[in-house]
Every structure is written in C-alpha cells, then in structure tokens.
Design a protein around this nucleic acid. Sequence first.
DNA 1: TGCATTTTCTTTGTCGACAACAATATGCAC
DNA 2: GTGCATATTGTTGTCGACAAAGAAAATGCA
Lengths: 234, 234
Amino acid sequence: MLKTDTANPAERKRGSGVRVVYESLRDEILDLTLAPGSPIDEVQLAERFNMSRTPIREALVRLAGEGLVETLPNRSTMVSNIDFLNLHTFFDALTLMYRVTTRLAAQNHAAGDLERIRAHQAQFAAAVEAQQALAMIATNREFHAAIAEAGRNPYYTGLFLRLLDEGRRLLRLYYQSFDDRLPQEFVDEHEAMITAIAARDVEAADRLARSHANQIVRQIQQFFARDARQDIAL
Amino acid sequence: MLKTDTANPAERKRGSGVRVVYESLRDEILDLTLAPGSPIDEVQLAERFNMSRTPIREALVRLAGEGLVETLPNRSTMVSNIDFLNLHTFFDALTLMYRVTTRLAAQNHAAGDLERIRAHQAQFAAAVEAQQALAMIATNREFHAAIAEAGRNPYYTGLFLRLLDEGRRLLRLYYQSFDDRLPQEFVDEHEAMITAIAARDVEAADRLARSHANQIVRQIQQFFARDARQDIAL
DNA sequence: TGCATTTTCTTTGTCGACAACAATATGCAC
DNA sequence: GTGCATATTGTTGTCGACAAAGAAAATGCA
C-alpha cells in the first residue's frame, strides 16, 4: 500500500526473504512511515513482497522480539506505540548506555576503530550541513554504534542499538516539527568525544557522553512538554 | 530424543504451540540439557512436539533473537556456545545491571514490591537449605528479577533478565562441579539488599549490589580459572 | 426500535508438500 | 590409489491450503 516493491517476481535469493521483509518493516516503523498503533496485515504484506505468509510471519516474530511490533494472540499484530508516559525510563537507559559505551571505547578502542568513528562523524557533519533530517538521524546512530563497537561489549552494544533505534522514532517527530533545523552543537560535542576517546581519557569521555546525552534528552523533553501544553491549549 | 512430551496428540490450544516449544527449548538450553554447540533438527523437534515445522521455526526465530541459538543460513541451527574468552564482558554488564536495578528498586519500589521480593528470597533460602542446585538458580533469578521489576525500567529489566538467563548456564556448570554445596553468604547478602531497598537507601543498595555481584563473579571466575588450569594439566 | 443470537467474513495458526541448497557418497578417469 | 565430476541424501526455506478464533454483519424476537 505504501511502496510497491513487488519488483522482482521470483528472482530472490533463497533465505533472503525474511531479511528483506524484516529490514523494510523495521525502517518503515522507525521512520514513522508505519504509524505507531497501526495494524499489520500479513496477507497484504505477502502480496506486497511477493512471497508467502510464512517468511512474513518470521520477520514479524523477529520484530516482536525487539519490541517494534506487538502481537495479540489470534488477533492482528500492530506497530508498537510510543510510551510517552514512561519516556523517562527510556532517557535514563539511553544516558547510561551513552556513558558506558563511550567510557569503554576510550578504554578498549583498537586499530581502525577511530578511523571508522571519524568516518561516521564526517558523514554526520555533512548531513547536518545539508540539513537532511533523515540522514542526520541515520549517521548519528552509526556514529554512536561505532563507538559502542569500539567498546567491545556486545551486551551494551545490543541494548544501545535498540535504544538508538527506538529513539529514531522520537527524533523523527522532533525534527519533523522543528523543520529540520541544524544542531551544530552536536557536531562539536561529537568531536570532543572523539578527542577524549583517542586520548584514552575515560573520565573525560564519560563526562562528555553524559552531557551529550543530557543535551539531547533535554531538547526532546522540552519539545514534548511544549507539544503537550499546546495540546491542552487547543 | 530427550523427553517424549508427545503426550497429547492434538488437544492443544490454538496459538500455544510456539510458546510451548519456545519455553521448553529455552529451559533445556539454559539447564544445559541441550549442550552448547549441539545442532537442532527441526523435523526431529516437530516429531517430538507433535506439530508441524512452522511453529517450531517460529520458536527458533525467537530463540535466535535472544541469542540462545545461532542459525546459519541454509544450514542447521545450533545451540549458542558459551563465549568463555569474553566472559569479562558478560560479568561487566551483569555487575552494572545488578547495581542499576537495585538502585532503582530502592528509589522506586511501591506497595507490594517488597512482599514479592521477600517471597522470592524465602524460596531461595529454602532452596539453599535443601541444597537443590536447580531450585537455587531458579529462585535466585526470580529474586533479582523481582528487584528489577520494582525498579520500573523495562529496558534494564530486559537486559538483566537476559544476562541472568545466560548466567544460568554458567551457574549450572558451577554448581554441577561443586556438588551443589550451599553458599549461605548469598542468602545473607540478599537480606542486606532487601533492608537497603526497604529503607530507600540508594547508595547502600548500590554498594551491596556491587559487592554481591563481585562476590558471584569472583567465585565463578576462580572456578573457571581452576578448571582451565586443570584442563591444561591433563 | 433495541437487544440477543446466529451467521458470515476476515485473519490468524497450523499443516503437508515441494524446491533449493549443502554435504556426503558414488563413479570414473588417470 | 588419488583427484575430480556427478549423483544422492538430508535439511532448510518457501508455498498454498485448510481450519480455528474473533469480529462484524445479519437475523430474530420482544
């Protein structure tokens, strides 16, 4: 219904079906192309992707495992709602993961890590310069993901990626409303974090990560608080 | 092959199939009934649970999402190996989650939380008294899960439960080798944590959680270090 | 007209079958 | 006997179909 990616009828590598569906749905959910709370029809997806319901279902099971969709037994599955009432738990966990991963990156980064991190930072700066909201969100995620990778703790990385993805939905709302204006300050903060990591200065990395997280959290919280007040005013 | 839970031929509630398979396999993996690295045959499971391969596969997808099994494309899926070389990352994350959840429990616990926590602690103490290793592992998990619940941050709770489950496999090895002897000290430490939570003493809760985690980590590390040395000696 | 009940209809959960892929076994040439 | 190409076997990924479970619509009755 959204996109008709029914391009190739049957020229699809065996075993790639689930991955395609999973990644497509995942991106659409996180980009808010699929609205939170909207129902998901299996047969519709099967038609759209030109495949049977079986791989569609397996993709949905994966998405459910990550909390991106919720599936009621014998009832339709739907895109998970954003829990605005408990956003503070999200921000709390996000801040902790920012700090922990950046700390560990300063401790454990090895050859090649800094190059990868700097490359993502360059892409992020370019996206900010071009004022492209979606690219900003994506490159920011990759930047912090690279830092987490350099920290070399897959448990932290896993939770952090999940939180960053969940945050993509919030950021999408945020940038949508602010008309894609550019937060140059984030670029500078990123640079400072890279410097601290390169110097293996754990405490500085922690401090920067914490203030970076606080910065983001504060802005988003202000935005949603303003939004809520407007809702009441109407 | 292990258990023939082929009891009821078809008297099974619609939609419960996946859950049954998922929980059974999960328990067997964590209890080491299914050895790490052992292959998983879908048709064999289908015969054992008296159902088609479809629900079996969905259960395996869920397990793969939690990292309990690994699935190679077009090749058989197998029980995830324990990554002994990177155990420190596991202990690191586990310790942090011990601390964070206990801190939050001291901050946020509400009516009924303490009762639930104390109930699990009583069961744990009973299991220790009875020197039942499996019951000790299970009740210990429930005790800390209840604390995490009282902390009211589902992101932390989710990661913590995953770590505790992964730890079940390590603890299983640990207790197996030590002939199920009883760590009375854990019971006492639990009691102290409950007291700190009840008093809403966040710093004390943090301190106790940290030392509790260190205690456990140290014992398991010693065990595996000893084990490794024995392996070399042989 | 309003409510309870039955019927239809939609959507899910499960099944058995088939095709593709990987690994092993077989055959053949040297 | 060895090395390579081919056939065979086993296992996975995908499919189309059917039946159960709700939900919605239709019917009946007061």
